[in-house]
Nucleic acid binder design. Structure first.
Length: 113
RNA sequence: GUAGCUAGUUAGACGGUCGAAUUUCUUUUUAAGAAAUUAGGAAAGUCCGAGCACAACAGGGCAAGGUGCAAGAUAACAUCUUGUGAAGGCGACUUUAAGGAUAGUGCAACAGAAAUAUACCGCCACUUAUUUGUCUAUUUUUGUGUUUUUUGAUUUAUGUAUUAUCAUUUAUCUUACCUCCUAUUUUUUCACAAAAAUCCAAGUGGUAAGGUUGGAAAGGUGGUGUAAGAGACCACCGCAAACAAAGAGAUUUGUUUGGCUCUGUAAACCCCACCUUGUGCAAGAUAAGGAAGAAAAAAGGUUGCCCGCCUUCUUCCGAUAUACAUCGCUUGAACAUAUUGGUGACAAUAUGUCUAGAUAGAUGACCGUCCACGACAGAACUCGGCUUAUCGACUAGGCUACCCCC
RNA sequence: GGAGAGGUACUCAAGUGGUUGAAGAGACGUCCCUGCUAAGGACGCAGUACGGGAAACCGUAGCGAGGGUUCAAAUCCCUCCCUCUCCG
């Protein structure tokens, strides 16, 4: 799990980021990000109801959070990130998800060089 | 040994690295460290029943809805247990929305003479009229015209037969392909015309045996009986009612009586008996109000309606603004073990335990080893059930049928 | 988490037990009309599966799926599946 200070929590925050943020896409994921005035980066994960039943959705969320946790020290400060999964996400395994997230973070220039 | 029946249990294991939530303790002061605990048999579907919370849920009536063999269990139930009836299985055993159709109403297409009541055909008796020719029907003969095979569908009759089926057979319709394509004759079928022969009507009453249907025709089979017939009578079977016995009861057994009353449908309306206030934790609780104006008849609330009951409104100003919070929230019809009572569901007593409580939502991610290679699947206020999904593994000094050996 | 509504042809849909060939409209296909197209007109369309037949045609199943009640179910009852809406 992510530490509590790094989580996005409020419904308003998710709505604001979805409305005003910039997006980067890959085959199974979408990364939405926006600048913020707090130095600590905050991350939220979204998996829709169409991806599968509750067990599948929970496992995907855990795997995505685990990958983000490994990269959290490399992330640039002053930003909020929402990672959304596409409905066919259940095809991917752990290593493929990690590759996709790295690709997205580099493409969106979210990582400290 | 094979095939089953019943009742249950379980739902990968071990190790390493990195993390999350709750509680407690310690140190430091907002963080860190340690320890303990951290998802199921269905957590699911939300199909029933309760707790709990709020709303004057006081109360009465109507409407609406639910349940439906008996006795019991339970906080309650559309649940469970033990029995009864019915159905299925060689059997162990399983399944069962199983009250009332003689309280009333409705519906029952098509077919059929007739659909819950009738009397069309037929059968029988009696009375009246009466042999005539027209019509009609049948048969025979003659003449004219059409058709003639095969397959399929529908249909008539006969035989076997309880029916069904099967075999033979009659007629009509459909027409691909093949053969012939000129004419004549014979036979058969149908249509038309002519001739000859035969039969003929109406009414009253009795009867429900027979009449190609249909899911269903109002007891069945055989006999007696009769003008013809009939539960009109008899034997056996079946149905219904009353009585007696057994049982707590559903019901069972026996005896007597009955055939006027008697089709099916209540998962159609309905009747009988019993039950139901509504909304649902997004329930709800915790806060800051003040001023002015209107007002006794209306408005609003209380369940769908009526009675009844309860409350009061409008405007302006201001406060609260991470209320996106805290509580509700987990000690409970709880769990484990033992004893006792009960056929059993279950209950009582004793001892012990505290065993998820998140809020973008924790209970995990990755790696390694082993095996049978891991199914269905994720708590969201809490319980009791039902239903549905599910790779497998295992248990019972349990039970049944068949086969083999002693 | 809680409360509801619906499912009939390619699409929109009618049909609440009974001769049903399961209305109707659009779309689609064929033909007519026109020098050509559009519009218009006619016909066909529960168009599927299985069995029989050379064919015409006949029989059975089929209204989201599976059971039940009934002589008879798209319709009545039960259980599942799918879609949509509302409650901060």
């Amino acid at each position: 799990m992510l530490p509590k200070q790094n989580r996005l929590k409020k419904r308003k925050e998710f709505g604001y980021i979805h409305k005003n943020g910039k997006r980067v896409h890959s085959e199974h994921l979408t990364l939405t990000y926006i600048e913020s005035r707090f130095p600590i980066p905050k991350i939220g994960v979204v998996v829709s109801n169409k991806s599968g039943n509750a067990v599948v959705r929970n496992r995907i969320k855990r795997q995505l959070r685990e990958i983000l946790k490994q990269n959290i020290n490399n992330l640039r400060s002053h930003q909020n990130i929402v990672l959304s999964a596409h409905p066919n996400i259940s095809e991917c395994d752990f290593s493929k998800l990690g590759a996709e997230i790295n690709y997205l973070l580099k493409k969106g220039k979210r990582i400290n060089e």
